[in-house]
């Protein structure tokens, strides 16, 4: 199999199958969660649940208090850097925008590639920092499971292979681009059934917690 054949297969059946698996998994998980339902609240409402829910979605972007912030400083700073880098790379690189455009028929302007390249390096270095913290901190190491390392690896690989293919390193571009798409396919397949699902459930969870607290009249 040549690089061109491999790339063509990944761009065709390979990524289509992964996307089918991904979307089916995400929809399955979301329907399961949303259809769990809630026991009817018989108590008198002391505030608006939806307002508090929406507010909590926003307020949880900030650390709860100075002490928590100080204690988890590396996780918070590296976590933010990584997520911002990942967002820029996924949504503001022109080839990626063209991919979204082919599916959703809407496009938006991309950033110059050296800028995206910078954010890729930021994301990669932050991820390495987070992994180092996970293995070097006794408590975090104790709490970590295989799933945590798997989620890290399948997120790290698309960033790394994307960086290598953009810079034409290690392998000819068609091979590296094919491997990049393969790594994304792996991420998509694993995504719905691991903690990576937090990309979707994060906002549901924040809203739910905020809404319950709001209905009980908890002051924010």
């Amino acid at each position: 199999m040549s690089g061109a054949e491999f790339l063509l297969w990944m761009r065709g059946p390979g990524i289509s199958f992964a996307a089918l698996f991904f979307i089916a998994g995400v929809v399955l998980r979301l329907i399961e969660i949303l259809m769990l339902g809630r026991t009817k609240n018989l108590a008198e409402l002391r505030g608006s649940g939806s307002t508090a829910g929406m507010r909590t979605i926003a307020t949880r972007f900030l650390p709860a208090d100075a002490n928590t912030f100080r204690r988890s400083l590396p996780t918070i700073v590296l976590g933010y850097l990584f997520h911002i880098g990942l967002f820029v790379v996924i949504f503001l690189l022109t080839p990626h925008i063209k991919l979204f455009q082919s599916v959703f028929h809407i496009g938006w302007p991309g950033l110059p590639t050296p800028v995206v390249d910078f954010f890729t390096v930021v994301a990669l270095v932050s991820m390495l920092g987070l992994l180092w913290r996970r293995v070097s901190n006794r408590l975090l190491r104790f709490l970590s499971t295989g799933e945590d390392y798997l989620s890290w690896a399948v997120t790290f690989m698309p960033l790394l292979t994307g960086y290598l293919s953009y810079h034409h390193l290690l392998l000819p571009y068609s091979w590296m681009l094919g491997i990049h798409i393969l790594s994304v396919a792996l991420l998509l397949v694993i995504f719905p059934f691991t903690k990576l699902m937090h990309s979707f459930t994060l906002f549901i969870a924040r809203y739910y917690n905020g809404a319950i607290a709001g209905e009980k009249g908890v002051q924010q």
Binding site: S16, F17, V27
Partner: peptide, 18 residues
């Protein structure tokens, strides 16, 4: 960078199956 073949159809089937 655009997928070839029936990518959008695959997504449609994915939603239905999910």
């Amino acid at each position: 960078s655009m997928p070839t073949g029936h990518f959008s159809t695959a997504l449609g089937y994915g939603v239905a199956i999910g």
